[in-house]
Design a protein around this nucleic acid. Sequence first.
DNA 1: TAGGTAGTTGGCATTTTAGCCAAATAGCCA
DNA 2: TGGCTATTTGGCTAAAATGCCAACTACCTA
Lengths: 110, 110
Amino acid sequence: MLEQRKVYLEARARVLKAMAHATRLFIIEELEKEERCVCDLTAMIGADISTVSKHLSVLKQAGIVLDDKRGNQVFYRLRVPCILNFFGCVESVLQNRAKEHAASLEAVGH
Amino acid sequence: MLEQRKVYLEARARVLKAMAHATRLFIIEELEKEERCVCDLTAMIGADISTVSKHLSVLKQAGIVLDDKRGNQVFYRLRVPCILNFFGCVESVLQNRAKEHAASLEAVGH
DNA sequence: TAGGTAGTTGGCATTTTAGCCAAATAGCCA
DNA sequence: TGGCTATTTGGCTAAAATGCCAACTACCTA
């Protein structure tokens, strides 16, 4: 693998890795609707606020969200608007799997 | 977070996590061009064949690739055709970051 | 059948993640 | 200033991911 390509693939992988967690996907989906402060997200997620803060930090480091401090709250929003469409392919992977799983159950007579 | 939504987010996260590795992204890009046996991929990647085999197994379990044994070789191919387009958004995240990074260097006089 | 190639799996050490608590920081208001 | 709320950070433990080697399986060919 050429060094240049490796660097590029690692950059992509870092972005994907930052998204690859249920809680962080939840945050992304919520931020698609509107910006949110950490306390709102924490209430919705139901984990410790320090945990949520660390998830947000992962997303921020990956370049997926931006933060904006106002008063004693910090509001987060998406940095890129396209995340929603991004998932068409993930969905099709999941649907394919579901379809074939159903077919295989069918085949053994369930 | 509602249980049902959590299940769905975890399913998505599993697919993303499977993709979130430079070597596995390399494999996906190569399989977009044509199917490949493990030995070809191993030669291109330059890692131990057992390592490559395990990466392929991760992709297979996530529903991203299919395998097909012929003779004593195993050929892998993508299960869904859309992976290439999938990355438009990842790219825009990276480009945004690069742009702002350049701007911040500019700002401090570099 | 023996030997070789291709691939998978088990085992292990190392590194990375995740999530909680506790402590520290920052801004608001009385 | 003192106290309160919001958030981040450090520290810790448990769990998961990586990647190598070695052992094992499968298939082909002489």
